[in-house]
Simulated scan of single mutants.
Amino acid sequence: MHIRVISVGRIKERFLQDGILEYEKRLRPYAKIQIIEVPEEKRPVSATPPIERAAMAKEGERIFAAIPEGSYVVALDVNGEDWSSTALAEALSRWELAGNNQIAFIIGGDLGLAPAVLSRSNLRLSLSHMTFTHPIARLLLIEQIYRAFRILRGEPYHK
Score class of each variant (00 low, 15 high):
residue 1 M to N: 04
residue 2 H to Q: 07
residue 2 H to D: 01
residue 2 H to W: 07
residue 2 H to G: 01
residue 4 R to H: 07
residue 8 V to A: 07
residue 9 G to I: 03
residue 11 I to V: 12
residue 12 K to G: 11
residue 12 K to F: 02
residue 16 L to H: 01
residue 17 Q to I: 02
residue 24 E to T: 06
residue 29 P to C: 02
residue 29 P to Q: 07
residue 30 Y to I: 11
residue 38 V to P: 00
residue 39 P to R: 03
residue 41 E to M: 10
residue 44 P to I: 10
residue 45 V to E: 15
residue 45 V to I: 04
residue 46 S to I: 05
residue 49 P to L: 10
residue 50 P to V: 14
residue 51 I to G: 05
residue 51 I to K: 15
residue 52 E to I: 15
residue 56 M to Y: 09
residue 64 F to C: 07
residue 66 A to E: 01
residue 67 I to N: 11
residue 67 I to G: 11
residue 68 P to C: 09
residue 70 G to L: 10
residue 72 Y to D: 13
residue 74 V to Y: 15
residue 74 V to L: 08
residue 75 A to W: 03
residue 77 D to E: 13
residue 78 V to K: 13
residue 79 N to P: 02
residue 80 G to L: 05
residue 80 G to K: 13
residue 84 S to P: 12
residue 85 S to H: 03
residue 87 A to G: 08
residue 87 A to D: 15
residue 88 L to H: 08
residue 91 A to W: 08
residue 91 A to L: 10
residue 95 W to Q: 06
residue 97 L to W: 08
residue 98 A to T: 12
residue 102 Q to S: 13
residue 105 F to M: 09
residue 107 I to D: 11
residue 109 G to D: 04
residue 109 G to F: 00
residue 110 D to L: 04
residue 111 L to C: 07
residue 112 G to A: 04
residue 114 A to C: 10
residue 120 R to Y: 13
residue 121 S to D: 14
residue 121 S to K: 10
residue 123 L to W: 10
residue 123 L to D: 08
residue 124 R to H: 15
residue 130 M to A: 12
residue 134 H to Q: 07
residue 137 A to I: 10
residue 137 A to D: 09
residue 142 I to M: 05
residue 142 I to Q: 04
residue 145 I to T: 01
residue 146 Y to P: 05
residue 147 R to W: 02
residue 149 F to S: 04
residue 150 R to A: 12
residue 153 R to I: 04
residue 156 P to H: 06
residue 157 Y to I: 08
residue 157 Y to A: 12
residue 158 H to T: 12
residue 159 K to A: 08
